[in-house]
Design a protein around this nucleic acid. Sequence first.
DNA 1: ATAATTCTGTTGAATAATTCACAACGTATG
DNA 2: CATACGTTGTGAATTATTCAACAGAATTAT
Lengths: 209, 209
Amino acid sequence: MSNNTRNVPKATLQRYPVYLKALRQLKKQGLERILSDELSKHVQIKSTTIRRDLSFLGTLGKQGYGYSIDKLIDVFNEKLGTEFDEKIILIGAGNLGSALMHYNRWNYVVGEISCAFDVDPNKLQMKYDVPVYPMDELEERIPKGCRIAILTASSNVQKTVDRLAACGIKGIVDFTHEHIQVPEGVNIKQVDVVSAIQELVFETNEMNV
Amino acid sequence: MSNNTRNVPKATLQRYPVYLKALRQLKKQGLERILSDELSKHVQIKSTTIRRDLSFLGTLGKQGYGYSIDKLIDVFNEKLGTEFDEKIILIGAGNLGSALMHYNRWNYVVGEISCAFDVDPNKLQMKYDVPVYPMDELEERIPKGCRIAILTASSNVQKTVDRLAACGIKGIVDFTHEHIQVPEGVNIKQVDVVSAIQELVFETNEMNV
DNA sequence: ATAATTCTGTTGAATAATTCACAACGTATG
DNA sequence: CATACGTTGTGAATTATTCAACAGAATTAT
């Protein structure tokens, strides 16, 4: 009933990207509406949890009909601010960084990589339409209003994080294998194969006890 | 007090990799012991939560002294089965796959990539000491006892997942942007920049309401 | 139209996770 | 060896999350 997005539980917030991804896929398949029960089968989350999660964003479904997929996607964009215009910077233009610049196909999804930075002078060339600047020039080249950085460089990690925070970065997607600390108010998401594998191994072993 | 790892809460299981990573870093810095309060500052998790989490693995700390870092790391390895010998396969030898084969430095951490598979005949060459086989040969080439697969290929994703499950894969680290469904008993971990960015954007916006 | 059906939104109960508070124990000190 | 101190491990209390059950709104069928 509330019209803003205050007080959305953390657990719910973490499920939104899952819904959004599934919805985009369903739309691509030509579907126009979906029931919470059907969506449940796709994302393996109980339908009642889905309905509750969505209810935080407004009264979106219709009884006896379900949800309009387009409407849901729109609401995610409007209310949660994924308005395609997020400016993202990339730190590190190595193998992984290149892969990310390459599938810069999150155009129309969250935003796009505005520019990249690297310490290696050999890597300072435009790649897949993304300019690569020297790491030294971070403070002057960083786009106005940029909040999100993707960190793939693995030297001087902690120092780099501190510089990013000083530049006003509010969220860091961290691909490094280091453990790093962030100042208050900065959010970090690990995107780490090793940790992911560990979690899988832990959970797989648990299941066999 | 329990000597096995039964009934470890899911939330706890997800924090273990965080602890492990921080502990390895502290060890590298030459530290030998740590208090739950100190560790708390590093990982931003309340010390009381840390103590409870660790207590599921046995009685590891000493009152008035803290925890031995070496001992903790050993316990994670022993009790949770990260015994360095996990055989991992990689599906897709493109940019991202190459990056993963390159920092195959999870030797001594979880295991190693035994081999990779790709549909593209041009990519079927040994890369960073990892052999790359044709996708067709998955069923015959997959190592015995292999439980974990890393999925970076982005064509025929769902079909590939089904084949992996049929081969006995129990955990999939998923780098694709697709939404995929897994059969009962198979665990999946998304390692997705886009979803990570979305979560960051969602949470960053939340904080400013 | 009207009635039957379907599926949402939400209440309240059950379960899970976190945090508090402190007794018990190991260490350090004299 | 005894005493003081500091930190763990853990019941009990609190908070967060999930889940079941159902009233009621919108659709569909007649």
